[in-house]
Structures are given as C-alpha cells and as structure tokens.
C-alpha cells in the first residue's frame, strides 16, 4: 500500500469535512425556522463525525497524532482543505448552494471509495452511506424548492450564489501529488473522474430547477488549499474552533 498517497487523500477529505462542518454549525441558532436549524446543525455535526473517523484512520494506521490534536492543534499551513469550504457562511442561500455542491462531491467520492482496495476507507464509505444520502436529499430538496418553485427573489438569490460558488467548488478537485498511484493501486479513481461524475449529478439536480451553471473563466481559481495555501478566512476559523480546548491546556478551569 502506498502510504503517502493514502495519507494525502484521507487528510484532505478529513480537513474538508471538519471545516465545512464547523462553518455550517455557525448557523446553529440562526438558521431560518427551528426545524431547518436542527436539520442543518445535525448535518454539520455528521460532517465533523466524518472528519473524526478519517483522522482516526490516520492515527491508527499511519501514526499521526489523535483526532482532537489533528483538528485543534495544527497550523494553518498543515491543513489541506480547499478554499471552497473556508469561505464565511454568507446568507442562507450561499450556505445552501455550497452545501449542495459540496455534498454532491462528497457523495460521489464515497461512492467511488466503496470499491477501494484500501479496506478502512471502503468500510467507512459503506458505514456513512445512509447519512450522506440524507444530506443530499436535504440539499436537493432545498435547491428544487428555492430554484424551481419559490419566488423570483429565491431564484435570483440561488443563481447569484451558484455563479459565485461554482468556480470555487472546482477547487475540491485540485489534483493531489499521487493521482496515478491512487488509480494504479485501485485505491481511488482520481479527482478528474470524481469531477466528471459530480458534474453529471449536479446537472441532473439542476435540471429540475431554473438555475444554470455559470461559465468558468478560470477553473483553477479555487486551487491552492491542497498544497497548504489558504484564504484569509481559515486562520480565524481555526483560532475560534480551538479556543476552548487551548484555554484548557493553558490551565483554565471550568
């Protein structure tokens, strides 16, 4: 097994899940109506659970530190999340469109990993399949309601968020250093193949709406995260996320 290739794949998946989970949890208590608040917070919590499961594989099989230290005590440059998940939550349409684009990619990725030759990833993919299926149902339902039914305002808001987010979403598929190794050893079919399937799936969902994918001038505009270069939004997020656990290490008692 190609350890560096698997590690790189798992780390970026874990960091994406942790950061999008934290971002979406920021809606907790503020999302429109209580039912949606609970549903979205619960989905965010699931993402953090996925991150934990992935960090745990790194801890148990590759000698990395434990999941809590991975999440809270690394420097910004050690994160491998894409820029797309780092952006602030914006208004609810922005967060919903990001949830839609991200979760479709996540669903495709885990679907591909179900057949991975790396057993821990294949097992995880099978285990969380039902969970992600619900996340996708939640996203697709909202996209349909606000992008097809809804009102003129809701269509306009969703379209404008889609225009902004779609080019950045392509940063999810920024190739890693080991694409050929991952494909060659049947660990993962690679980012290019993932992007192809993702585009097909989101196009199908958007066909039920009035929303159109925008033209992309620069498909690499959201790249950098996989190499450890991040937006200005990541550092404050890490600081806030780790505030409590770091104050405990510094001796704060509750």
């Amino acid at each position: 097994m190609n350890a560096p290739a698997i590690k790189e794949l798992i780390l970026k998946m874990a960091d994406d899940a942790l950061i999008i989970g934290h971002r979406n949890s920021e809606w907790n208590g503020f999302a429109p109506i209580i039912e949606e608040d609970i549903a979205f917070a619960s989905i965010a919590q699931d993402k953090i659970g996925h991150a934990w499961a992935l960090y745990k594989i790194l801890h148990e099989h590759f000698g990395e530190t434990d999941p809590d230290r991975m999440a809270f005590f690394r420097e910004e440059k050690d994160f491998r999340c894409c820029h797309f998940v780092e952006l602030p939550i914006g208004e609810y349409d922005f967060s919903l469109v990001r949830h839609f684009l991200f979760d479709h990619a996540e669903y495709c990725r885990y679907e591909m990993l179900e057949h991975s030759s790396y057993e821990p990833l294949a097992q995880l993919a099978k285990k969380i399949k039902g969970e992600i299926k619900y996340h996708l149902l939640h996203a697709d339902t909202w996209i349909k309601k606000l992008g097809a039914q809804g009102s003129e305002e809701s269509h306009a808001r969703m379209q404008s968020s889609l225009n902004e987010l779609y080019p950045l979403a392509l940063g999810i598929f920024e190739p890693g250093n080991f694409e050929n190794e991952l494909m060659g050893e049947n660990i993962f079919a690679g980012e290019t193949e993932l992007q192809k399937q993702w585009l097909e799936n989101i196009t199908n969902s958007l066909n039920n709406t009035n929303l159109k994918l925008p033209e992309v001038k620069n498909p690499r505009i959201g790249f950098g995260g996989r190499k450890g270069f991040h937006t200005e939004y990541l550092r404050p997020l890490i600081t806030e996320m780790s505030e409590v656990i770091k104050s405990e290490e510094a001796g704060t008692e509750w």
Partner: peptide, 19 residues
Amino acid sequence: VHAPEAELALVFAKEQFGR
C-alpha cells in the same frame, strides 16, 4: 413539524423524529 409542503415536511421529520 412546520413545512410549506410534503417533501420538506419529510426532510424535517427525518431529523426531528428519526435521528
């Protein structure tokens, strides 16, 4: 649950009462 129509009612009901 509150919901504008049946599909969203199911989405919300799953999280409120099925989790």
